[in-house]
Design a protein around this nucleic acid. Structure first.
Lengths: 286, 286
DNA sequence: AATTATATGGAATATTCATTCCACTTATGT
DNA sequence: ACATAAGTGGAATGAATATTCCATATAATT
């Protein structure tokens, strides 16, 4: 049979989308009239586009729990010549996404008037975030990380201290550490009971404390309190002049870039994630 | 000949790097003692890693102006079984790390010499974060953002709904919007009063709701509740299949890359920041 | 300069992989 | 309830692709 021939009622279009966004839209639009196995493929594909981009028909079929032939049928039902043809679209999506950063900035700078204000703001934040991240990566001191892990490794309970702007970070750590089976107490200052929450620290415990200019006095006070009881203190803060720097056993310096006066939080977040996972990893090594 | 056998002075390692960063380092280190055509390949590969990830041996060979067989030799000189084996490394650079925690950890443990494990983890997260950010930027749809702002602009009070993994994001927004003078209510489910907190919504209000797989049922229920009372709903979620997608007036799709099975949160965070500031910006324009 | 080792191009081969085909099952319409 | 169409799994096929092999060229060593 000649390929690419327009053939049946299923094939609503002779020229299927060549970009991922359009493909996606099309799949969603036709969701209802796709047969069972084909929706199964559709669901897997839209949820795991990266896998589709790189996998082989067999490997993808296995993960989506269908036969390889079903992938071909799916592709053809959408108007593509075959699976390979469809896969190209998934690959182009990754391609476009990768070659991006520098070109995009230049592009934005050029016709920034075309883009909406909101998009420029988003771009500005994304840019600031990336700068923060790469700065953190470059300045990161292995030794600090190791010592931080030493401090936290043997702790019975880990107290998480961080209010206001830093609270998202501590609340994330509370969630993640909990999932990893590490005992934590998140000082959230609910009902004004911060001091009480941190009241039972012992020298068997440790604390992670996070604060940036202007350092919330409550955070500093709590950290001091915990420290006085003999618990190890790991701090994440933004400069040598931070009260936390003097107070902590180990401290990370994180400099967040800002956009229009708003500091990002991504480098801190990322450091927190890494610290969390590295800690779990260490504990598991036993 | 048995494959993967350790063979000659060129092959300094029996277990070649499985991640791109290490591969790159290795190639640079051995630059001098590689034969002419092989440096030619090395140069092309490091300059065009994306092409290597996507192309076939023949297409890459053509672009690098060598024979396909040279690619195989290059791969083997580096200790890989063949070109396909090497290509996997280039692909893994692009692909979200979807392997399970244990596998990845084991893998990391093997090739973890040199840099400390913790540093590698940090690096991995930084990398995943950057990929997420650039993906978000590239896929971002201006129209969605505008419509989200339309929905939120006139709202009296903005309800922030997001629990568990999404809570850091909503708590950040609560902080930032508060600072910017925009009235918010953060549903934090303290004392199990989530439903009560969201009880007084009116159609004058709006909600921002955030959830990712596996969608916390409470978040979905709360969003529905708010929706039923006539408030506008803006969602941030990870796929069309999210219950929030069907429910919301406008929804953002954010695909976070993950590392070691832990999804990052940076793209979501950044989008949240942008949304926050853009909203303040709009309101100020009046 | 002669000899040996190493590198290279290109054709031959082997392998992987998408695709097609067919028997069988499930749904749809009369 | 029957007939017909649509959908599905799995093996067979054929195309695309990596890999190996060998003759030839280039460099290194004596």
């Amino acid at each position: 049979m000649p390929r690419g021939k327009m053939m049946d009622q299923n094939n609503t279009t002779a020229t299927p989308p060549r970009d991922y966004a359009a493909l996606r839209e099309m799949v969603i639009a036709r969701w209802e009239d796709l047969p069972r196995r084909l929706t199964q493929v559709a669901e897997y594909a839209l949820n795991n586009p990266d896998d589709v981009a790189f996998g082989t028909a067999a490997s993808i079929a296995a993960k989506a729990e269908v036969q390889p032939s079903t992938l071909v049928r799916f592709s053809q039902a959408l108007g593509y010549q075959g699976f390979s043809d469809l896969q190209d679209v998934f690959r182009s999506r990754l391609r476009d996404q990768v070659l991006g950063y520098d070109e995009r900035m230049a592009q934005l700078r050029e016709h920034g008037h075309g883009a909406s204000r909101a998009s420029m703001i988003l771009d500005g934040f994304a840019d600031a975030s990336m700068r923060s991240l790469s700065a953190m990566r470059n300045r990161h001191d292995e030794d600090v990380m190791e010592r931080a892990l030493d401090t936290l490794e043997g702790a019975d309970t880990i107290y998480l201290i961080g209010l206001r702007r830093s609270f998202p970070v501590t609340s994330y750590m509370a969630y993640a550490l909990g999932k990893l089976g590490i005992k934590t107490i998140l000082i959230d200052a609910v009902a004004g009971l911060a001091a009480e929450q941190a009241g039972f620290v012992t020298k068997q415990d440790a604390a992670i404390t996070i604060s940036f200019t202007p350092y919330a006095s409550e955070t500093v006070a709590l950290s001091q309190q915990v420290r006085d009881k003999g618990a190890g203190v790991v701090a994440i803060t933004d400069s040598v002049f931070s009260p936390l720097a003097g107070l902590a056993d180990v401290w990370f310096e994180v400099a967040e870039a800002d956009f229009e006066g708003f500091r990002t939080l991504n480098a801190t977040m990322t450091l927190a994630m890494a610290l969390t996972v590295a800690l779990a990893d260490r504990r598991k090594a036993k």
